[in-house]
Amino acid sequence: MASLIPCPHCGLRPKEEFSIRGDAAPVRPRPDAPFDAWDAYVHLRDNVRGVMHEHWQHVGGCRRWLVVERDTFTHAVHAVTDAADFTRAQGAPTGGGGASAASGTRTGKGRAKR
């Protein structure tokens, strides 16, 4: 994996500052979603071989949740986006049961440059 990761808020930073949570694809179902949807969300994975989106947190920097596009076979890092921006670009709702709840981001907060 690249030694330096381009954080959208902090610029190029050492990889060790980041913590990888895992696959960003599973979206938390609504609380009243059917059992199967919850089972799949908690347990089943696409386990991508190739380019996948992951939730990373820049714990040693801005502490923002990020979505990193990374290749699981070559370890190449292709793109890094703020999780809130990523979710917005996907057109999914950002409050309540959307992907942003899983990533822990809130829109409109913590965006100041450090």
């Binding site: 895992g22 696959d23 799949a40 089943l44 994975r45 696409d46 386990n47 071989r49």
Partner: peptide
């Protein structure tokens, strides 16, 4: 395993 199971249309509770 996940790659092979996908050929059979399955998703597994597995991460590589």
């Amino acid at each position: 395993s996940g790659q092979v199971a996908e050929m059979a249309g399955m998703r597994l509770p597995i991460e590589s």
